[in-house]
Amino acid sequence: MDSAFERHCSELVARERSGHTAVVEDSLLYVWGGYMSVADDEVFLPNDEIWVYDLERGVWEVFHMTGEVPPSMSGTCGCCLNGHLYIFGGCDDNGQTNQIYCVNLTDGKYTWRKIIHEVGSAPSPRDKLSCWVYNGRLIYFGGYGHKLLTDVDSRNRSFIVDEASWVEDVFWGWNNEVHVFDPMQSSWSEPQTQGRAPAPRAAHASATIGCRGYICGGRVMETRTSDIHCLDFESWTWSEIIPVSTTPVGRSWHTLTAVSDSSMFLFGGLSVDCKPMSDGWLLDVDTKKWREVEHPFKNKPRLWHTACPGKDSDVIVFGGSCDYILLVDTGHCNDALVFQMQPYPLFRICEDYIAKNVKNYEVLRNQLPLLPSKLQTAVQRRMSFYRPSKKQKY
């Protein structure tokens, strides 16, 4: 973990935010939405802009978005499929929503499209849910939202009413529902799952490994947990993973990221006693063992941040809060923390070494033009990343 780093290499830097959406596509980190604190108010970030961070060059750019632009909101669930960013749910000025939007990240136009489903029924409005991507479909789990009294079945434990929040015939609460959206068919479906489902929850974390989706912890009614559950997408069967080692403390608003064919990285969150955390843990799903990992960001607690898998098993954490977000004057962040989870390939080690040192060594500087054009371009991009900047933070 010694090679982990945090950089702001460009003069232009994305705004601080929490509850946003972020995905990585082709070494570019895309950030949309969320909110920040201004004086005593919580302000949604502009809905018609998307921030793009080049992980190779360390440069931020911001682009204007057009089309059927979704409302400004936080707590939406975002994922990337075939170069397209999909967002579902979230909370805007009118409360939770159940709309789904899509934007192509690869054509440079950034035109939003609101998707109107043709088959099935959309889930009820919700935010702070999670998503898995498998076999060309988007699989959503859990969240906090509202249902009409007529849609709440007291015999069905898939929705737990928040006793502190209800208005006439509208109830808010947590759910453990599984809903599948097929973009090709523009269809919603709700598979019949087997096994013991996790308790209804929100602000949990999720990750996908192979044909299985995992969830960890989250807010379950009035408590926060660290339990691990697995859903097999072939059989739609739930199972719980019972760790055989020391486990992380219960938490919500954390992240879980797959970093290999059998392991996931957990970072940060809000503890049971409302403490922002900065610990990192690896879970081996084969051995069912948690292992706390050392990293250089122990002084950077984060919650309601995003974490995306990057190149060579890196984990890119962006934004979030370093304070308890229900307090006024919350400290939102805009730094990108890059965790190295696996040894880098020799090519990347050499590329980074040259980029770091080419300006200091006369021989390297003179020989740079002798490199093949593709390699020369790659090294020049990395040189941009390591170039000193007023915006750098360590």
Rank of each mutant, 00 (worst) to 15 (best):
A4C: 15
F5G: 08
R7S: 11
S10V: 07
E11K: 09
E11W: 02
R17Y: 01
G19Q: 01
L29V: 11
Y30F: 15
W32D: 05
G34M: 04
A39S: 14
D41R: 12
E42A: 12
E42S: 13
V43F: 12
F44I: 06
F44E: 10
E49F: 03
E49I: 08
V59I: 06
P71I: 00
M73S: 11
G75A: 07
T76Q: 15
G78P: 10
C80E: 13
L81T: 10
G83D: 09
Y86C: 02
F88M: 04
Q96S: 06
N98Y: 02
N98E: 03
I100C: 07
L105D: 06
L105Y: 10
K109S: 08
Y110D: 07
W112S: 03
W112N: 09
P123K: 04
L129R: 04
Y134E: 12
L138P: 01
Y140Q: 01
Y144C: 04
H146N: 09
L148G: 11
L149C: 03
D151E: 13
N156L: 11
S158K: 10
S158A: 05
I160H: 11
V161R: 14
D162V: 05
D162S: 10
E163Y: 13
P183R: 09
M184W: 09
Q185S: 10
S186V: 02
R201V: 02
S206G: 06
I209C: 13
G210K: 07
G210A: 09
C211F: 05
R212W: 00
Y214V: 10
R219C: 08
C230A: 08
C230I: 12
F233Y: 09
W236D: 02
T237C: 13
W238V: 08
I241K: 05
G250L: 01
S252M: 00
D261L: 09
S262I: 05
S263M: 13
G269D: 01
G269C: 04
P276C: 06
G280A: 15
D284V: 03
E292K: 12
K298L: 15
K300Y: 12
G310P: 07
K311S: 11
D312S: 12
S313H: 14
I316M: 11
G320K: 02
C322D: 05
L327Q: 14
V328T: 15
D335C: 12
A336Y: 01
L337Y: 05
M341D: 04
Q342A: 15
Y344H: 06
I349H: 06
C350S: 11
Y353W: 15
K356M: 14
N357D: 06
N366E: 13
L368Q: 02
P369M: 05
P369V: 05
L370T: 09
L370H: 03
R381L: 03
R381K: 09
S384R: 06
S384E: 10
Y386I: 05
K390S: 13
